[in-house]
Design a protein around this nucleic acid. Sequence first.
DNA 1: TCACCAATGTGTAAATAAAACACAAAGAAT
DNA 2: ATTCTTTGTGTTTTATTTACACATTGGTGA
Lengths: 232, 232
Amino acid sequence: MDSKKYCYEYPRPSVTTDCVIFGFDGVDLNVLLIERGIEPYKGKWAFPGGFVQMDESAEACAKRELFEETGIKDVFIEQLYTFSDVERDPRGRVITVAFFALVKTSEYQLLAGDDAIKAQWFKIKDIPALAFDHDLILRIAQNRIKGKIRYQPIGFELLDKKFTMPQLQLLYESILEVKFDRRNFSTKLMKTGLLIQLNEKMENVPHRAPRYLMFDKKKYNELQSSGFNFEI
Amino acid sequence: MDSKKYCYEYPRPSVTTDCVIFGFDGVDLNVLLIERGIEPYKGKWAFPGGFVQMDESAEACAKRELFEETGIKDVFIEQLYTFSDVERDPRGRVITVAFFALVKTSEYQLLAGDDAIKAQWFKIKDIPALAFDHDLILRIAQNRIKGKIRYQPIGFELLDKKFTMPQLQLLYESILEVKFDRRNFSTKLMKTGLLIQLNEKMENVPHRAPRYLMFDKKKYNELQSSGFNFEI
DNA sequence: TCACCAATGTGTAAATAAAACACAAAGAAT
DNA sequence: ATTCTTTGTGTTTTATTTACACATTGGTGA
């Protein structure tokens, strides 16, 4: 019996998705990688991904693969770029639609020592050798998040629902790879009118405790539809 | 003889490229469309595009199709977004990698009344019914060019090598759909240091003739590699 | 020929935003 | 109670953006 049962008049490339998953550990920006168990690039690290099925869009595929390989779901995800170099996959012609996702790491405990798939967070400054053209994909993803965080409030997707101003600042600094003046940063962010101050402070810190904040997503959506734009 | 000779173990989508071509006629932003001669959407207007071959990247495909269908080559072209909705093409599963191109309309005279392919410029404000999901593609392309022109000097790709400040301002205004103060616009653009004033003026205008300018691409490339960024 | 007209070229003042900087207050540790 | 580290809330200075005015050019037509 012939296993190659799907036949076409012209040759077709395979289409896959890959997903660059960003997380924030409080100090550094991190990326979630999966160790490949099979050739090619066996033992190398790669982004989770897989083949687009005939009944799902690329975005649906990216979300499905993300959940299947890491257990992550219902997170911010956005199309990044499509990589289509002829030689990018040694197995043949594979076009990949790359996505990037932002996750609150505290909500997803990785199942360490899981049998099938070995997933691990890596600091963005300490990435191992990657499979395929995933180093290129990562570089483009990093540039995208750097550009995007300045004009869209995506940073909050990486923090817990409740966060403090110092945490928010560390996040911005780690993504943009710059340092901000603490006072100017706070003033600017509060001036957006999108941060709600809670009557609650951090506990068990050996100094003055910072107050908790929340991002006002409802207000942002309202402002956005009336032609407002977030700028840091 | 069976024409379906390319067989695979799993089904594969077709992959195409489409290209949104922007041009500027001195007053309005325009888009180049092609009238479809065959079903589906026969008689409707669409972006030029076609199937990705096995030996070419998506970008190479977009450039090839652009030349084959319009005669345009060696222009600014950039990947826009990949459209992969399951139902976007009635012929079957077709994923399209969309691009956008910027052309100097004066350099490409459309072959009016050409037999095979009927191409025509349309003002962005006066677009006919489009085939497939091309109205969605156009909307996303328009948003992209709006965002991009503010932080990259792509406007010059739409103007002749020599242009005047009023022409440049009209271009920015037509893309961004806003009005600028003539004096502030000029000051800001000259302050980038990337415009070379020529000792030449426009002729045969019934008022003071504006001076011609050129974009200093060489200087821009040098500045860019040393971490400079263009901002309007 | 010369005033007229429509647009260009250049500049300045006011308003706004960004950057630099200082001190008081909280809360755990001693 | 004192010390220490970090947060919260300013002010001053500088740079950028916005608003606005007048002189200049060059063809047009009385």
